[in-house]
Design a protein around this nucleic acid. Sequence first.
DNA 1: GTGAAAGCGCTAACAT
DNA 2: ATGTTAGCGCTTTCAC
Lengths: 331, 331
Amino acid sequence: MPSIKDVARAAGVSTATVSRVLADKPYVSPEMRRRVLEAVERLGYRPNLVARGLRAQQTNTIGLLVSDIRNPYFTDVSRAVEDLAYEHGFTLFLGNTDENPQKEALYLQSMRDHNVAGLIFSPTRHASEHFTKLNLTIPTVVIDRAVREGDVDMVLIDNIEAAYRLTNHLLEQGYTRLVGLFGETSVTGRERQRGFEKALREHNLAPLQMRFLPPYIQAGYEATRALLQAQPPPDAILATNSLLLAGALKAIREAGFPIPEAIGLAGFDETTWTPLVDPPLTVIAQPTYEIGRMAMRMLLERLENPDLPYRQVILKGQLLVRRSTQRRPGV
Amino acid sequence: MPSIKDVARAAGVSTATVSRVLADKPYVSPEMRRRVLEAVERLGYRPNLVARGLRAQQTNTIGLLVSDIRNPYFTDVSRAVEDLAYEHGFTLFLGNTDENPQKEALYLQSMRDHNVAGLIFSPTRHASEHFTKLNLTIPTVVIDRAVREGDVDMVLIDNIEAAYRLTNHLLEQGYTRLVGLFGETSVTGRERQRGFEKALREHNLAPLQMRFLPPYIQAGYEATRALLQAQPPPDAILATNSLLLAGALKAIREAGFPIPEAIGLAGFDETTWTPLVDPPLTVIAQPTYEIGRMAMRMLLERLENPDLPYRQVILKGQLLVRRSTQRRPGV
DNA sequence: GTGAAAGCGCTAACAT
DNA sequence: ATGTTAGCGCTTTCAC
């Protein structure tokens, strides 16, 4: 790998001139520019980004910390983030925290140690509740989970409202014995629970059951299996992420309850399969790509202008009504 | 951010001693070690990885280049890679190439510029056919797509065999007018086509149609829609990745052909939804997590020992027979 | 055992 | 307009 010195020697100029040419700085004669570019070309020179990062005390990397990239929500978000990062010459560090505060802390350390320019970050419940204690000096945009205190940019959806809307839809369809499955590890789960309860309360109903679960299909499956044993069983299940939803569907299927007649099923997150399963599922679709794009855009703006006031962007989920909750198709 | 100098000053030693202590080098007196560690603790010192990377001419990062992280195959692989990377103190750079040789080339450049220690890489068809011309000096493990020439470690599945097995299964079920949907942009698509044709030939049949498509649901959907118009229509469709498969399912559904009676549907890649859709889909399940883990393990071994002979690991896909191809449930 | 000093590749302040 | 040089933070000779 040739260094800037090699280029300077080959072009018969100083390294400073090479640097100037490459940075498109003014005050370089056309002749010098030509000679430098020729040498760069001939040697196949590429600037060493590690050296540049050290010197500039600033790298062109950004860190993306999510709980699990396999969660379709984060898969989509990460794609959006990466797209925009790529367009702007940033490279993406990816880390899965597994909703584990310790792993999360290690990754935050690592991102700092790597001197990333910025961070897009979906904090665990623990981190979102003690955000200021994290002492993040890196420009950060928080996604998906609201942070109580602390100055940060955030991109969120209105979880309470979305869960409220979804629950109301179930109630309008005549379901009354509702069960809620929530993520236990993020504040998002709590918020969706609030919307769920609010809708029920307004109808003078109480939840039949509520479960806070880790974000795995298996967890949704096992919880649902158990819940279906109750006498009388629930007549509707609301699962607040795509993993719990998939698990719930599997359990209801196996138990032989017809959907939507005996039991209604609704959840969060539009994925490839929600319209394709049997029956197609009613969900709140989050604008995942837009969330990722917005987060990255806000980060870029903050890098450009650190004094910007902190902003909190709240996007709305979209209710997609499908057969899994259509108990009254005629109504 | 305190630097090693600050630690040295605080501990009353030289930076060399601090470095030695942190690297757990021998020949440091217990007293010095104690003082250094105390100062490190007190100042909250963290080594700057950018500086270390420059000095060592070696970073603790690895690059993962895939066509699209949203493809469930790559989502799973990336999770496995990240797990193992994390366990070994490596941080992951992620890039989507979109099957675009130019974007791919830029990313390969970028990875080199960042001086990554190693690369896990799913080449476009173009790159896999001209692999030596890529002139990769970084230790690399190629996944998913075989590379013709060139010394590289690879982790693959036997695509010809898998497609052959899947096609035979369709033929055994009595389907005869088979259509194949293949990825156009990777060599994987070609290989699966070979297995498809081989099975047909052995039954003295010819494919009704074959289509090479970009890896998008929409592409699978549109192609299938068109294919179903034929007179007589196909009686089975084989889609060689999960995106084309989802598109095909959607089109068949809309056209109102009952699966598996009027038309059989089979494909590649087990995902959350393949067992949950209506009807559940027969697929070749690739051991995605194992592929990612193996790739990363091979990379770590090569970093440890660059003189290792190059290895090609071929894993077998697993045929999961479900209702979508069960035309003869009794047989 | 410990410290002084060079140097990884780059940029920017300063000198000319 | 161009060159000289210091220094980003670290590790590793080399000298003592």
